[in-house]
């Protein structure tokens, strides 16, 4: 029987496995375990595998959906994630790591749904909350800056005229002046910066960015005329465009109108259509091994 050299095994085969297989194979041997926890391997894995999933939060449970198979959604055991039934939860994701905010308790978590690893609770400073109504998402942006290998969460607090930034690596908050206009809606992470679509006082649509390394806002020149009347929010998932119009639709082949495909969600969800669910959130994220606790210390124990 032929055996493959470790180099091929570690560099060419194992990085191609899904996260679930990797979590299982951690108990093959100590060298497997060490490899799978190695930050370099985690990065290689991220660049080689592109498995995008949807994380759905119809109420207080979390569901994972694979748009490729689109039939079996998996309920996540939210060990350590102390969701209360009526608290609204808002989340953003980046590199497979999700930032979840539980409004009722004014705390957030960093959670990797693929490895099911969860960070300890991070309290949101009280004064920020006075500005935010309980049902409104409080976290305005979450992103990764590879240059400094850090994840940062951004909260815009207009009440205080401040922007709060939480760095996972430093496990601490920082405040800077807010942007001159009120930024609304979801952010898109590109190039280590968060981006908002922003209508100026003159109703001109442009892009405003927040650089996660420099921690500075920057306004781009206005968008060309033909963008000015657009009002679509799109997700990007596995190079497919995604839209949420009462159901989840995926454009399986880029640009092919006939390829819009509805993602099936199991019976349980049909009985309670997701668009009627008050606290629905849907996020696309890319499966990854990234550990929140590599950045901010110890994991909380399962209970």
């Amino acid at each position: 029987m032929a055996f493959l050299p470790q180099e091929i095994l570690f560099q060419d085969i194992l990085p191609k496995l899904p996260v679930k297989s990797i979590c299982r194979l951690k108990c093959v041997s100590k060298s497997f375990m060490a490899l799978f926890n190695d930050p370099l391997f985690i990065k290689t894995h991220q660049s080689q595998t592109h498995r995008d999933k949807l994380l759905i939060l119809p109420n207080s449970d979390l569901y994972l959906i694979d748009p490729k198979t689109s039939s079996n959604d998996e309920k996540l055991t939210t060990k350590g994630l102390n969701f209360s039934k009526d608290g609204s939860i808002f989340f953003c994701s980046c590199n497979g790591l999700c930032c979840l905010y539980v409004s009722q308790r004014c705390v957030c978590f960093f959670y990797n749904p693929s490895t099911r690893e969860c960070s300890k609770e991070i309290p949101i400073p009280n004064h920020i909350n006075e500005d935010k109504c309980l049902d409104i998402p409080v976290v305005d942006g979450f992103g990764y800056a590879s240059y400094i290998d850090d994840y940062k969460m951004v909260i815009l607090s207009y009440w205080e005229c401040l922007t709060h930034i939480f760095s996972l690596k430093n496990n601490s908050w920082k405040r800077i002046h807010q942007y001159e206009e009120k930024l609304l809606g979801t952010t898109t992470l590109v190039n280590g910066a968060l981006h908002w679509l922003n209508y100026s006082a003159e109703k001109i649509l442009s892009i405003v960015s927040f650089d996660l390394v420099e921690e500075k806002f920057k306004s781009f020149p206005p968008l060309p005329d033909y963008f000015q009347s657009c009002s679509t929010t799109l997700y990007v998932m596995d190079c497919c465009l995604c839209m949420l119009v009462t159901k989840i639709w995926v454009m399986k082949e880029y640009g092919v109108v006939d390829s819009w495909t509805r993602i099936l969600i199991s019976k349980e969800h049909h009985q309670k259509p997701i668009y009627q669910s008050k606290y629905l959130s849907v996020k696309a994220f890319r499966e990854a091994l990234v550990s929140p606790n590599c950045y901010i210390g110890e994991a909380i124990n399962d209970s």
Binding site: F3, R24, F32
Partner: peptide
């Protein structure tokens, strides 16, 4: 796990 160990000839330490 057992299958993968046998496949690659890896000893469980």
């Amino acid at each position: 796990v057992e299958y993968v160990r046998a496949f690659f000839g890896i000893e469980n330490d």
